[in-house]
Every structure is written in structure tokens, then in C-alpha cells.
Simulated assay, not measured.
Amino acid sequence: MNDDQFRQLLGYFDFSWAGYRKVRKGVKKRIGRHMMALGCEDLASYLSVLESDDASRLECDRLMTVSISRFFRDRRLWEGLREEILPPLVRGRGEPFRVWSAGCAGGEEAYSFHMMWALLKESLSSMPEVVIIATDLNEECLERARAGVYTPGSLREVSKGLRKRFFETLVKGQRYGVKPFLKENICWERHQLLGAPPGDGFHIILLRNNVMTYFQEPLRVEVLNQVISSLAPSGLLVLGARERLPESVHGMVALPDYPFIYRKEPG
């Protein structure tokens, strides 16, 4: 598959060339193997199959997912959540604090939040239970997340102290496994962002470096509005550090010091 054909496939899904340009090599290889398995010799026949067979279309959508993550990616976010943003939200709260990690990839983001929550408990006298729903379309990513075993590269922003506290060293330091207590209160679910959200009343939704990166504007707005509908009143939507909501998405206000974090306006 050449780049022109890949652009056509992206257009079929309303995906963004700008988002896929740097990662297209691996995606194109996966799509090529899928075309061969379906007996499609050219893009036209492949698109015809996708149009007529929902299972093949869903599989193609899954193969288009890009799973790039690491623990505490965008450190300013995690420091801001722990030091400034979360304390006033959770102090004295009785009901569980609901978090959705949307497009969770291999689970690094969900586990990072759980680690940060454990650290926050040390400075606050009373905190509610946290419930984390972590979703992805790619079942292979979810299996890796459930296992909780990672290479050293995924932990390059984790200090030695936090490695000792939250991880077990495996295979002579070539792998690290999250400690069992970190897996508690995390529910891993297969979910397509175009579908209905996996619940509602979320106090924080982490939607970083996926919808805003890989979707074109019309689809982007559709998915964003769907996701925002599942936020609790005054809930927070967290985008990637360089991402901003389109002007056509209403009812959200950026935090003054964190322009990539948006609060849902009451009503």
C-alpha cells in the first residue's frame, strides 16, 4: 500500500493524515496483512469488503490504532493533578471518584493515575475510593494492561523510589511488573470511542493524544461531544499537553494554568 492509497483509507474512516504521517509505516504493514487475509488485491476491493462486512471494518479500525505510551507521560500534568487540581476536588468527598482512561493503550496511563492517587493519600487526611475505567479497542493492548508487565523504556520517567514502591523487578531488570495492589479498582474494557461511553458521571476523563491527533475535524467533534456527555457536572476533560478543544465544542472551559485541561460548565 502506497501513501496515496493509505490517504484514501484514512479518508474512509475520517482519520487525519497529519496524525498518522509519522506512524504510518507500521499501520500500513498491518493493513497489508489484513488485505491479504481477506483476499483483496487492491484498495477498491478492500473498501468494498469493509463496506459490506461489519466485522472486517471493525478489525481494520482496530489495526489502525496506535499505541504509544509510557508512565507519567507529560510530567507537568501529573504534578499539576497531584499538587493543585485534585486536592480540592477529592477532599471530604464521600462517593467514589470516577475516572475514565479512554484509549488506554497498554495501561500505563491508568496505572500512573492509580500511583498518583496513592501518593496523594499521603498528604490528604481523607480521600474517597477511586474507580478507574480503562478502555481500548485493541484487545492485545488490554491483555498487556491486565498483565501489567513493561519494559524499562516505559518506566523512563519513573524515579528509582517510585519503581521500588510500585513495581516488581522481573527478568533481571529487563521487565517490570506493577505490584498487585495497583490492579485493584481498575476495570479494563474493550470499547470503541465512536460507541456509547462506558458509563457516566465521570469526574475525570483522560482523552490524550488519540481523538485530537488521529481524527479529522467532523469526527473529532462528534466523539468529543459524546465523551463530554459522560462527564459529571464540573468534571474535567484532560487532553494531550499540546492539544486544544475545537471552537465548535461548547460547554467546556480551560483551566487557567493548564490549557489542555477543561472543566465542564454546570448545566
Rank of each mutant, 00 (worst) to 15 (best):
K25Q: 14
K28P: 00
K29D: 10
I31C: 05
G32W: 13
M36Q: 11
M36C: 12
G39V: 08
E41C: 11
E41L: 03
D42Q: 07
L47Y: 01
L47E: 08
S48W: 13
S48H: 15
S48Y: 12
V49F: 06
V49A: 09
L50N: 09
L50I: 15
E51W: 04
D53R: 07
C60Q: 07
D61G: 09
D61H: 12
D61Q: 11
L63E: 01
S67L: 00
S67R: 08
I68N: 07
R70S: 13
D74A: 08
D74L: 09
R75W: 11
R76Y: 12
W78M: 03
E79L: 13
E79N: 13
L81F: 03
E84G: 13
I85Q: 12
I85C: 02
L86R: 15
L86Y: 09
P87C: 10
P88G: 02
V90P: 03
R91E: 10
R91M: 08
G92K: 09
G92W: 05
G94E: 14
E95Q: 14
F97I: 01
R98P: 02
R98C: 02
S101Q: 00
A102F: 02
A102R: 03
G103D: 08
C104P: 04
A105R: 11
G106P: 05
G106Q: 02
G107M: 01
A110T: 04
A110H: 04
M116W: 05
M116D: 03
W117T: 10
W117Y: 14
L120C: 08
K121R: 15
K121I: 01
S123I: 10
S123Q: 14
